[in-house]
């Protein structure tokens, strides 16, 4: 681990249980400041639960989480001002228009109204949402929702941005817009942490990768450290223990005889 770089996000033994099921089993996540980090893992690995706990949306059962050195649950004042979040499921105020949503977001964070409106206009233009700005979010498509959600998360210029599956279900054009914005954002020294299970995307965008499986961090480091000589895809399959089991069983599949 690169000790000389300060951590944008660090967790110590973070645990979350839902009933008898352990969703996150005491993980030590580490993301250096200024990195474009990918949090990868199969469905149910605990990515969303981890991101929720680190962003203060879900209380952990044990362990601590730090953002820029501040304890998320002890020092919410400094943490909440420093983060932007795009959670899973695109949960937004459905009955506001895109423009109203951005205006609302900026104002409840105490930004001056004029500044909020100016930033909102720029974001709407960059996200290619200017035309739909006055339509209700409830009528937006998936790609538009991700973009307006991202715009809302960026509006207050956070130091660390958390994105849960930002590219899932998004058309290529919108995905490209999102990618451009994020790359520009990290070039200025800010940190992006996003969860995904598209390895090609992570490989192309990220310089830091944390791999989760069954509530554990199974590998973590720079992209080259994690993937070694192979592609990230192969490294990932090896790490999460998905031995190729396509050969045994299923002998009936494909013959179309019933």
């Amino acid at each position: 681990m690169e000790a000389d770089r300060t951590a944008a996000v660090r967790t110590d033994g973070l645990v979350k249980r839902f009933g008898a099921q352990v969703a996150v089993a005491g993980i030590d996540l580490y993301v250096p400041a200024g990195s474009f980090a990918g949090l990868v893992g199969p469905n149910g690995a605990g990515k969303t639960t981890t991101l929720s706990m680190v962003t203060g949306l879900l209380r952990p059962d044990g362990g601590t989480a730090y953002v820029n050195g501040a304890d998320v649950w002890r020092d919410p004042v400094s943490v909440k001002a420093a983060i932007g979040v795009l959670p899973e499921g695109l949960r937004l105020f459905e009955r506001l228009s895109g423009r109203e949503l951005l205006a609302y977001n900026g104002r409840i964070r105490g930004l001056p109204g004029a500044q909020v409106d100016a930033r909102a206009e720029e974001l709407l233009a960059v996200m290619d949402l200017a035309e739909a700005a006055d339509k209700l979010v409830v009528d937006y498509s998936t790609g538009m929702r991700k973009k307006i959600g991202l715009a809302a998360a960026l509006l207050h210029n956070p130091a660390v941005l958390f994105l849960d599956e930002p590219f899932e279900g998004v058309d290529p054009v919108s995905a490209n817009t999102i990618r451009e914005v994020l790359l520009r954002y990290t070039r200025s020294g800010s940190t992006v942490i996003f969860s995904s299970h598209t390895m090609e995307l992570v490989e192309r965008l990220c310089d830091w990768v944390s791999v989760m499986s069954r509530g554990q961090v199974v590998a973590q480091g720079t992209l080259d450290q994690v993937r070694g000589e192979q592609s990230l895809y192969d490294a990932f399959l090896g790490l999460v223990g998905a031995a190729s089991n396509g050969e045994e069983g299923l002998s009936w599949l494909g013959s179309s005889s019933g």
């Binding site: 949306l57 919410p76 964070r109």
Partner: peptide
């Protein structure tokens, strides 16, 4: 009535 969008407000509740 905020429902699933309540996180937007929650994210700004520090004090």
């Amino acid at each position: 009535t905020d429902g699933r969008a309540f996180w937007i407000n929650l994210l700004t509740f520090a004090r």
